[in-house]
């Protein structure tokens, strides 16, 4: 079973839910797909080792063969190649590594090169196997790192921590999952961004339930929204100064508040029943 923890809004507690759930149920893979700002490792007592670099297959131009005809530049949909005043310019950050330019080049002047945009790390703690992707600072494209990261899913139960938002990196994280936990907070921002995340889960046809974090901090808009839409609220994490303090120090709260462990295990079992049927 593969569960993704997502949210429209950032900072609602995705990482908190993913890490605490993994620690509560044990014997799972925990995958940090928020490769722009990965934080799961801050809460885990695990030594990380690099598994591999993530490279994009970018074009390499043989300038002795290139006639500066500009056909590749015209073909590229991402404006990654330009021919200006008889010079060929390549903008690697814009390149999506689609492989079109070598195909269109009439001179066979374009070969394949590699460009590193991030890396994959692995670690273990107890019965949890942990992976994370890290996008290099200054690189724009998170999706290829997430794609590479997901190649390490082994088939055992897995909990994935998704990035915030609702665009391409989130979709890449969600694809192929059995269930999606949407974490929100009970505020107008939380409710609005939850509705965006719900749209996405529905569009992808992934079953989902809502976790309300910092319950009690705001108003009833999330409850009302879920009621209206017939959405299950599968857990509430109270707005508790102890939990906030533990979070700030990088301590998973189930390690200190043992009773919470059972809550997570129960939710996990409930999700399994819903997924397996």
């Amino acid at each position: 079973m593969r569960i993704v923890v997502a949210s429209g809004k950032g900072g609602t507690g995705k990482t908190t839910v993913a890490v605490n759930m993994a620690l509560s149920v044990g014997n799972v893979q925990l995958i940090d797909c928020d490769v722009e700002e990965p934080n799961c490792h801050l809460f885990l007592d695990a030594e990380l080792e690099k598994v591999r670099d993530v490279n994009l297959r970018v074009p390499r131009f043989d300038m002795d063969v290139c006639t500066r005809c500009g056909i590749c530049s015209e073909a590229c949909h991402f404006n990654a190649i330009a021919v200006v005043k008889g010079e060929l310019l390549f903008f690697p950050e814009l390149c999506h590594a689609c492989g079109l330019c070598p195909l269109v080049c009439p001179e066979g002047a374009i070969g394949e090169g590699e460009r590193k945009i991030g890396r994959i790390d692995r670690g273990e703690t107890g019965s949890i196997e942990f992976y994370r992707g890290v996008l290099d600072v200054g690189e724009p494209m998170a999706t290829p790192v997430i794609r590479e990261l997901k190649a390490h899913l082994s088939g055992r139960d897995a909990i994935l921590d998704a990035p915030p938002g609702a665009s391409c990196p989130v979709i890449e994280s969600l694809q192929g999952s059995d269930y999606c936990i949407l974490v929100t907070e009970p505020t107008p921002f939380g409710a609005y961004d939850l509705s965006i995340a719900v749209d996405l889960a529905r569009r992808l046809g992934i079953p989902f339930g809502v976790v309300i974090n910092r319950d009690g901090i705001g108003d009833a808009c999330v409850d009302e929204y879920c009621e209206r839409e017939g959405i299950d609220i599968i857990m509430r994490i109270p707005n508790d100064a102890r939990i906030a303090r533990l979070y700030s120090e990088g301590i998973p709260f189930v390690n200190e508040l043992r009773e919470r462990k059972e809550d997570f295990a129960r939710v996990f079992d409930r999700i399994r029943k819903e997924v397996v049927g």
Binding site: G10, E36, M141, G165, S167
Partner: peptide
């Protein structure tokens, strides 16, 4: 936006 990727840049 949050993050460090394309929309942030």
């Amino acid at each position: 936006p949050p993050g460090i990727g394309c929309p942030v840049i």
